[in-house]
Amino acid sequence: MQNNRQAADIIPDLYERHAKLWDSSRGKTLFERSWLDRFTALIPQGGSIVDIGCGSGEPLARHFIENGYAVTGIDSSPSLIDMCKARFPNADWQVADMRHLSLGRNFDGLIAWDSFFHLTFEGQRRMFALFRAHSKPGTALMFTSGPAHGEAMGVFVGEPLYHSSLSPDEYRTLLAEHGFEIVAHKAEDPACGNHTVWLAQQQ
Score class of each variant (00 low, 15 high):
37 D>P: 01
13 D>L: 10
81 I>G: 00
132 R>T: 12
3 N>A: 14
53 G>I: 08
100 H>Q: 09
15 Y>E: 00
24 S>P: 00
68 G>I: 13
16 E>Y: 10
135 S>C: 10
187 A>H: 06
178 H>F: 12
43 I>A: 10
81 I>K: 02
28 K>P: 01
8 A>W: 04
134 H>D: 03
45 Q>E: 07
12 P>F: 02
94 Q>N: 08
63 H>Q: 08
156 F>S: 06
173 T>I: 05
115 S>Q: 03
79 S>C: 05
79 S>L: 13
138 G>D: 02
9 D>S: 14
80 L>A: 10
123 G>A: 13
179 G>T: 08
35 W>I: 13
185 H>V: 06
142 M>Y: 05
118 H>F: 07
117 F>V: 09
61 A>L: 02
107 F>S: 14
142 M>R: 01
60 L>V: 13
60 L>C: 08
31 F>D: 07
138 G>P: 10
179 G>V: 01
63 H>K: 13
202 Q>D: 06
177 E>T: 12
180 F>E: 02
199 L>G: 15
12 P>H: 05
58 E>Y: 00
177 E>L: 01
133 A>Y: 03
103 L>M: 11
4 N>M: 13
157 V>L: 03
202 Q>F: 11
57 G>L: 04
143 F>H: 11
146 G>R: 07
140 A>P: 10
98 M>I: 11
8 A>V: 14
133 A>R: 15
10 I>Y: 06
28 K>V: 14
193 G>Q: 06
110 L>S: 09
132 R>C: 07
143 F>A: 12
107 F>C: 01
21 L>F: 06
34 S>L: 05
57 G>N: 06
59 P>Y: 08
134 H>P: 06
97 D>P: 07
97 D>W: 03
53 G>S: 09
120 T>A: 07
27 G>W: 06
111 I>E: 00
46 G>P: 08
145 S>G: 09
155 V>H: 09
20 K>M: 07
39 F>G: 09
11 I>D: 01
139 T>F: 02
189 D>Y: 10
89 P>M: 08
6 Q>N: 08
22 W>Q: 04
103 L>N: 13
110 L>D: 04
128 F>W: 01
51 D>T: 05
172 R>H: 14
